[in-house]
């Protein structure tokens, strides 16, 4: 098994204008429920559209809506680029 494998990319690593598909959501509890309710389910196409002036949170385009997530939380949402 290759232990030097690249870590799975997360939503937080997306550059502005970059798109990806959601792979897994490694969160629990209310936050996970909210994220799912907003349509961020595995397979969903997401585009990073902007960052706040301080660089955090970032805003994502999801199913025709714009959702802002803190980078700490977005880090737990793994994606396929």
């Amino acid at each position: 098994m290759n232990t030097n494998a690249m870590p799975i990319p997360s939503l937080a690593q997306l550059n502005i204008g970059q798109t990806c598909h959601i792979n897994t959501i490694e969160l629990t509890g209310l936050l996970k429920r909210r994220i799912l309710d907003l349509g961020l389910v595995p397979g969903t196409l997401v585009e990073c559209v902007r960052r706040s002036p301080s660089g955090n949170p970032s805003a994502y385009h999801v199913r025709g809506t714009t959702i802002a997530l803190r980078n700490e939380d977005a880090d737990f949402i793994k994606v396929k680029l």
Partner: peptide, 9 residues
């Protein structure tokens, strides 16, 4: 805690 914001049009 966490904060999810919607930026409506």
């Amino acid at each position: 805690s966490t904060n999810i914001l919607e930026l409506p049009p």
